[in-house]
Design a protein around this nucleic acid. Structure first.
Lengths: 128, 128
DNA sequence: TCCTTCGTTCGAATTTCTTCGAACAATGTA
DNA sequence: TACATTGTTCGAAGAAATTCGAACGAAGGA
């Protein structure tokens, strides 16, 4: 989790760092939204949270190399680095994005009824 | 009501928790070793670390549902829960295991002979 | 039974992560 | 220029994760 790179160079993709960045429900949600809706500004995620907190999570994703950010007028547009991730870790992002979907939505591929629920014990977005 | 079956009930697989468990280099190494060498006792990982620390990491993996542990004499045998993981998150474990390998070793699986770059960047295994 | 082995659990110290207000910077608009 | 918008950065407080010694428990062997 070190970022001593220059501003121009993108961080090297390190598997544990990528997995860590995606292990937070909020960040995973951000990535899923970027994957489904394309590049988006930080403020367009409908997340009720102070902007400094939100900015922190984007930074974690950025430092891990999961997303890239560029300015566009006043806004900062975030881009999911699909190609780089695919090149470094083939199939990883796709499987995570797929796994992040509710089972009901995923069952379109696999015909399997499921009656389970999902809840996270750790790193939930509740107040600490 | 006493239900013996629930004694063996494994934790529900939650994606962020699984990703978090695998986001630690040491735990990732443990999982890779379990994947390649099959069930193994805790003390057979060649990790120079107090046993209480090591036990902690096994517990994290266990709580996330990544591995299961059962007693066998004096030893505690760890098993990678491949089937359960595959059922819950198709392709995820495989892509992570594949990504955890050095690039040189991974390119062997590719059908097409990739004569492209041979990045010599070392695998990162620094502690967080 | 005593002792050894293998691993878990406990408790505390240390480190890291998360959150959030406040200050700051960059851009666009009146 | 003055002001609003959009995010970043800083600093501190609180929460969580990691580490490790010590105590404990469950086999197995002498």
């Amino acid at each position: 989790m070190s970022n001593r790179l220059t501003l121009t160079a993108m961080p090297k993709l390190v598997l544990p760092d990528v997995l860590y960045a995606l292990s937070d429900p909020l960040r995973l949600r951000i990535v899923c939204q970027l994957a489904s809706e394309g590049d988006t500004a930080c403020g367009t995620f409908g997340i009720d949270m102070p902007k400094s907190s939100l900015s922190h999570h984007f930074k974690v994703l950025r430092d891990a190399g999961v997303i890239a950010t560029h300015s566009e007028g006043v806004r900062r547009i975030n881009t999911l680095r699909r190609d780089e991730l695919e090149a470094a870790f083939p199939g990883l992002l796709e499987s995570i994005l797929d796994a992040a979907q509710p089972r009901a939505a995923r069952s379109r591929k696999v015909l399997k009824p499921s009656r389970e629920k999902t809840s996270s014990t750790r790193a939930s977005s509740g107040p600490r």
